[in-house]
Amino acid sequence: MTLPLQHYLVLSGVLFAIGLAGILTRRNILFLLLSIELMFNAANLLFVAYARMWHDLGGQVIVLFIITVAAAEVTVGLAIAILMSRQLRTLNADEARSLKW
């Protein structure tokens, strides 16, 4: 008797929604990056669950690619955060508006 697939799917959906709420409610760029990581993890859980459901290891390979992309994203994002605090003296994403009209 194994656990139904829906358990994993709903957990993944709730984790994704928590990350979305973090992005929508926080304005510090570090919290935004952490929430994005949370959403990446929720997607990974979904991929692994479906890989097991369809008996296809391709889903797990995709997770390896997602981890790589997340590492690249967080590297550039943190470099931007350092640059922001150095040049704008703030980490509030709303105050970095020099590219907006």
């Binding site: 570090l30 967080v74 955060a81 605090s85």
Partner: peptide, 19 residues
């Protein structure tokens, strides 16, 4: 990497993180 960057940044100015 996150922790390293947090140590590089000045943490005192970040507490107004909430909208």
């Amino acid at each position: 990497l996150f922790l390293f960057v947090l140590m590089l940044l000045n943490l005192n100015q970040e507490h107004a993180g909430r909208s």
